[in-house]
Design a protein around this nucleic acid. Structure first.
Length: 273
DNA sequence: AGTGCGACCCGAACGC
DNA sequence: TGCGTTCGGGTCGCAC
């Protein structure tokens, strides 16, 4: 389940593998992944080359050497694999981009939740999916005052607010749980009740946790392996996520698991009062 | 406007 | 064992 750290790992891995190779063909085996016009998708890619890969929040921005960029969101289980065009197509490979050297960039997505679209370079910053993103967890723009301003008058819980990409872009369920544990804040606390001191702790914790997770290549839980065999090592660093019924590493209390707005929240009832 | 929830998917885990 | 059911994950769009 890729979060920002995993997406960053995929970005770095793909940059080493697919830049400056001319695209020969594009095959769309499951078209609901593609959010834009299918003809535009193929037209923009065929004959072009990727010249850089950027990232905003959890979106990958694959820049082409023409007027277009390819945006890709892996959602939970999207992965890219580089294979020979002669390799058999396996289950869950949905988009095949073939280069002139007969290698394929294959998009694999068990859940089919991922999304891709082509946007014009000159309107990239107006793309709705990018425009609404808040600051990133390790951005210096993410300050306690910025956060407090976003949380004021919010009656929903801080846990739910941390998942809102328009406030902080890139935190998913795993890191939201970890950030609140590190900041010693109860996940059920309302946004409007967060103090400046608490906001400072959230900013500090998200910065530290995400920086470390990126350094370690992300978290691997369940089926997720980032592209091309690079496996994240951050999982062992998780203090509360998926650790219900285990003892808190700080105080020894039993970690609890609950449902909150349809999402699973893990927390230490003693450390996070 | 703010909030909550179902829908999108399918494999794994669970219950009987 | 084998079946059916539930769960989880990020985001959007709809309903209130």
């Amino acid at each position: 389940m890729p979060e920002i750290a995993e997406v960053e790992t995929v970005r770095n891995t793909l940059k080493r593998q697919i830049l400056n190779k001319k695209i020969k063909d594009v095959n769309i085996l499951y078209d609901r992944i593609i959010e834009c016009d299918l003809d535009l998708f193929k037209k923009a890619l065929i004959g072009a080359k990727f010249i850089n890969i950027d990232r905003k929040g959890k979106w990958l921005i694959l820049e082409l050497n023409n007027d277009y960029d390819l945006l890709s969101h892996l959602r939970m289980e999207g992965k890219f694999f580089l294979k020979s065009h002669n390799d058999p197509i396996v289950k869950h490979e949905h988009i095949i981009i073939t280069f002139v050297d007969n290698t394929d960039l294959r998009y694999h997505d068990t859940r089919k939740f991922g999304r891709m679209l082509i946007v014009k370079k000159d309107t990239l910053n107006d793309a709705p999916c990018l425009k609404k993103l808040g600051y990133e967890p390790n951005s210096t723009n993410l300050t306690a005052d910025y956060l407090l301003n976003k949380l004021k008058n919010k009656s929903i819980t801080i846990k739910t607010l941390l998942l809102d990409q328009s406030i902080i872009s890139g935190l998913g369920n795993i890191y939201a749980n970890e950030v609140l544990f590190a900041a010693k804040i109860n996940p059920f606390k309302k946004g409007q009740d967060i103090s400046k001191k608490e906001a400072e702790r959230i900013v500090k914790a998200s910065n530290e946790i995400i920086s470390k997770a990126i350094m370690m290549g992300g978290t691997t839980i369940k089926s997720y392996t980032s592209s091309l065999g690079v496996t994240g090592m951050f999982q062992q660093e998780l203090k509360v996520h998926k650790r219900d019924k285990e003892k808190c590493c700080v105080c020894g209390s039993v970690i609890e698991k609950q449902k909150l707005n349809g999402r699973t929240v893990y927390y230490c009832p003693k450390c996070q009062k």
